[in-house]
Simulated scan of single mutants.
Amino acid sequence: MTLVKAGMVVLDCTEPEELAEFYRGLLDGERTAASANLVEVRGADGVRLAFRRDINATPPSWPRPENSLQLHLDFLVHDLDEAERRVVSLGGRPIETRTTTGPQEHRAYADPAGHSFTLRLLPRTAPKQG
Score class of each variant (00 low, 15 high):
residue 1 M to R: 08
residue 1 M to Y: 05
residue 2 T to Q: 14
residue 3 L to A: 15
residue 3 L to M: 13
residue 4 V to H: 12
residue 7 G to D: 10
residue 9 V to W: 10
residue 9 V to T: 15
residue 16 P to C: 01
residue 18 E to D: 08
residue 20 A to I: 03
residue 20 A to L: 02
residue 21 E to F: 05
residue 21 E to T: 12
residue 22 F to M: 07
residue 22 F to G: 11
residue 23 Y to I: 11
residue 23 Y to V: 08
residue 24 R to G: 04
residue 24 R to L: 10
residue 25 G to M: 02
residue 32 T to D: 07
residue 32 T to L: 02
residue 33 A to S: 15
residue 33 A to F: 13
residue 34 A to P: 02
residue 34 A to G: 02
residue 35 S to E: 14
residue 36 A to K: 13
residue 38 L to G: 06
residue 39 V to W: 01
residue 39 V to A: 04
residue 40 E to W: 09
residue 41 V to E: 00
residue 42 R to S: 15
residue 43 G to A: 10
residue 43 G to S: 04
residue 45 D to T: 15
residue 45 D to S: 13
residue 45 D to A: 15
residue 47 V to W: 09
residue 48 R to D: 06
residue 48 R to A: 15
residue 51 F to G: 04
residue 52 R to L: 04
residue 54 D to T: 04
residue 56 N to E: 11
residue 57 A to E: 00
residue 58 T to L: 13
residue 59 P to I: 08
residue 60 P to C: 09
residue 60 P to V: 08
residue 60 P to W: 04
residue 60 P to S: 13
residue 61 S to T: 12
residue 61 S to Q: 11
residue 62 W to E: 01
residue 65 P to W: 01
residue 68 S to C: 07
residue 69 L to S: 12
residue 69 L to M: 15
residue 69 L to F: 04
residue 70 Q to G: 14
residue 72 H to L: 11
residue 74 D to K: 05
residue 75 F to N: 00
residue 76 L to T: 14
residue 77 V to H: 02
residue 78 H to G: 04
residue 80 L to G: 08
residue 80 L to W: 03
residue 80 L to E: 03
residue 82 E to P: 07
residue 83 A to G: 00
residue 83 A to T: 00
residue 84 E to N: 05
residue 89 S to Q: 08
residue 89 S to W: 04
residue 89 S to I: 05
residue 90 L to C: 06
residue 90 L to K: 03
residue 91 G to L: 08
residue 92 G to K: 08
residue 93 R to C: 03
residue 95 I to R: 02
residue 95 I to V: 14
residue 97 T to K: 12
residue 98 R to P: 00
residue 100 T to E: 15
residue 102 G to K: 07
residue 103 P to E: 12
residue 106 H to G: 05
residue 108 A to T: 04
residue 109 Y to C: 01
residue 110 A to C: 12
residue 111 D to N: 08
residue 114 G to V: 05
residue 114 G to D: 03
residue 115 H to M: 01
residue 117 F to C: 02
residue 117 F to Q: 03
residue 119 L to A: 05
residue 123 P to V: 01
residue 126 A to S: 14
residue 126 A to W: 13
residue 127 P to H: 14
residue 129 Q to T: 07
